[in-house]
């Protein structure tokens, strides 16, 4: 059943509406002074802080363009010059005015959140849990960046010792979700650009930005013909379909095959390894085993 207007064909959408186009648009908006820089808070919570590293890998737009022309980056643990309570000042003082909140990492709820303390304010520990509660409701938009923030990810992998949950589990409001481990810089920057220019982008029923998350990897996989013809790799390093090794491309909605990574030079399948479904809800537990050899053998 078709439940809502499917809009433009996602193929067309993906080829014409890339993050880069949005950035070009931003550039021209800036030239005409119609784009107003907004404040961005980037919280690193219970995770590996790999999404901020991935963001630094963005090229055109790059990090400098982001903080010079798109937003005022108010807070980020990995990059800000201030430390201690002076750093937290920026955060706590923010709650009264307009800002966009990006969160990477899950939220540890064990022991009332004390498994992840991100700072100390007036002598009291500021837990990841408290930080999201404090900043989440008042943000104009909340973007969950990466697997841990969107659905718990690796931080919540069984048996989930720190009792990690997603950002959405803590907040009752709409949370835009950009799963991926890590999140590709374009997925974040493209989403942010859309918010700055047009407001909230078109999301699917699980609040993922449709521009990036509309199609299965399998549907655009350059090795698809091998799948269709039943030609399967039996070890890594081969150039055929890695379905028998455990490829999660057929269940993972994301644009890796056309976008690629790190200045667009490569991606896991081109590296002769299966997709491990890192951009799919349920990663990692539901996407394991990542690599199997005992399913590749013939009778």
């Amino acid at each position: 059943m078709i439940e809502k207007n499917p809009g433009i064909c996602p193929m067309l959408n993906a080829s014409s509406g890339t993050a880069k186009n949005l950035i070009e648009k931003i550039k021209s908006e800036i030239m005409r002074n119609s784009l107003v820089k907004r404040d961005l808070i980037w919280l690193e919570l219970t995770g590996c802080s790999g999404n901020i590293i991935s963001l630094l890998n963005g090229s055109n737009p790059d990090f400098k363009f982001l903080i010079t022309n798109m937003v005022n980056l108010i807070y980020n643990n990995s990059l800000m010059a201030a430390e201690g309570e002076a750093a937290l000042d920026a955060l706590v003082n923010k709650t009264g005015s307009d800002y966009i909140l990006a969160v990477e990492g899950a939220i540890s709820t064990k022991n009332n959140g004390l498994y992840n303390i991100i700072g100390r304010w007036k002598g009291e520990p500021l837990t990841a849990l408290k930080a999201v509660q404090l900043l989440g409701d008042r943000a104009s938009h909340v973007i969950a960046v990466g697997a841990c923030a969107t659905h718990g990810g690796v931080s919540a992998a069984r048996p989930n010792p720190a009792e990690c949950v997603s950002v959405q589990s803590i907040l009752k409001r709409k949370v835009i979700k950009l799963p991926g481990c890590p999140c590709h810089p374009d997925w974040f920057l493209g989403t942010l650009a859309h918010i700055l220019l047009y407001g909230e982008p078109e999301l699917d029923d699980r609040d993922r930005h449709l521009l990036f998350y509309s199609m299965l990897i399998h549907d655009r996989c350059p090795r698809r013909s091998y799948f269709d013809n039943g030609v399967f790799a039996t070890r890594l390093g081969e150039k055929t379909c890695m379905f028998k090794l455990g490829c999660r491309g057929p269940v993972t909605r994301i644009d890796c095959p056309v976008r690629q990574w790190n200045s667009y030079v490569n991606w896991p399948i081109r590296d002769d390894t299966p997709c491990i479904g890192c951009a799919m809800f349920g990663f990692p537990d539901s996407m394991e085993p990542f690599i199997s050899y005992d399913t590749t053998r013939k009778r």
Binding site: I53, S54, W261, N262, P268, R270, C278
Partner: peptide
């Protein structure tokens, strides 16, 4: 390595 961080 296919991608970074978290290479394959």
């Amino acid at each position: 390595g296919g991608k970074a961080p978290h290479n394959h």
